[in-house]
Amino acid sequence: MEVQRFGVKFFVADPPSVRLHDFIQIFHGWIQKQTVENHLLIDVHNYSHIHNGPGILLVAHEGNFSMDMADGLPGLLYCRKTPTTGTPVDHLETILKSALQACNLLEGEVRFRMDDFLLLANDRLNAPNDDECFSQLKPIVSDALERVFGHTKYTLTRHSENPKERLVVRVAGN
């Protein structure tokens, strides 16, 4: 499976605590200091007017970060745009680490759940949302999770079986 465009979303542990507009200032601050490693941070876009939308978006050359509101569940979403090097496991590891870096930067503002999150294959050509692809993706995800989180046990499920949607894996800690 040759997928480069992965995404990951870590849910906020306490959704009512999220004050969406605060992230405008926070993300502008990140740009001022170019805080996120290996990323060229470019701009902030306010999508708070869209119901269950991308919330507040931080645009970077390598990938976008957002305090995302999809499904009404706030969370830090990172979607990779530029290719990374190495194997698919390497790609996923890089992407998980980038998202975790952003989560760490937000410590003090908001807490994230590490026992329940989503991994997105943002590539309908190489990773259509079907059983076959899910089967191919599972070992890649497991290996990447082990590299990032050690020997924690996770259950991997397909988030939706709607073939129009992207292949999204729900990762739940046991």
């Binding site: 465009r5 876009h45 999508y47 869209i50 939308g53 991308p54 978006l57 645009v59 976008n64 957002s66 943002n122 590539d123 309908r124 129009k164 992207r166």
Partner: peptide, 15 residues
């Protein structure tokens, strides 16, 4: 519309 939605997700910012 489905295609436009897919393109926004994969190449843009889902908007």
């Amino acid at each position: 519309m489905d295609t436009l939605a897919d393109l926004a997700e994969e190449y843009s910012d889902s908007v």
